[in-house]
Write a protein that binds this DNA or RNA. Structure first.
Length: 159
DNA sequence: ATTAATAGCGGCA
DNA sequence: TGCCGCTATTAAT
């Protein structure tokens, strides 16, 4: 497998780091206080990605299925949950229960929550479209302030 | 090798 | 209202 690299993407809510290898995109994160030195910075093979991310954060529709994601390293159920979530139609939300059902484990909604917490590719795996049964947002259990920074873009996330 | 702890939910007292 | 069990995975004991 090819070596992991990263690139910086400028967006309205700050710089994102996108980690990638030849097989696809591995992770999307906000930069840590100390820049990563263990991986080389390189040019993205997907030229439209920065533009698409900015379009998305401005509320436009983006088809993330066109970007290959590296799903290796996730446990099997986690992977099924994340792949299911990628298919939530634009403008819709699913409950944790619905998400678990689509992942093949109708009673595994709690486990689905845990699986979403392991998501390394937010936005492209739209974990923000999974809500509780009462309609309130889920957790965004990703380190780095995702919840605050993304919810500040009112009305964008649930389109 | 167990046990606890999780981005949740519905049933039952 | 509060407690219980359910599911998959990880961290702690």
């Amino acid at each position: 497998m090819s070596a992991l690299q990263f690139s910086r993407l400028k967006t309205p809510c700050g710089v994102f780091l996108v980690f990638f290898r030849s097989g696809g995109i591995c992770a999307l994160r906000f930069p840590p206080a100390v820049p990563p030195q263990v991986y080389p910075e390189g040019d993205l093979p997907w030229r439209g990605l920065e533009k698409d991310l900015n379009c998305y954060l401005h509320g436009e529709k983006v088809d993330w299925s066109l970007y290959p994601l590296v799903m290796e390293g996730y446990p099997p159920f986690t992977r099924r949950v994340l792949e299911a979530v990628r298919e939530i139609p634009y403008g819709q939300v699913w409950t944790y229960r619905e998400t678990a059902r689509r992942a093949g484990s109708p009673r595994g909604w709690r486990a689905a929550g845990r699986a979403l917490g392991a998501n390394r590719q937010p936005i492209m795996v739209p974990c923000h479209r999974v809500v509780r049964s009462d309609g309130t947002p889920g957790g965004f259990g990703i380190p780095g302030g995702w919840k605050e920074r993304l919810l500040s873009l009112e009305g964008v996330l649930y389109r």
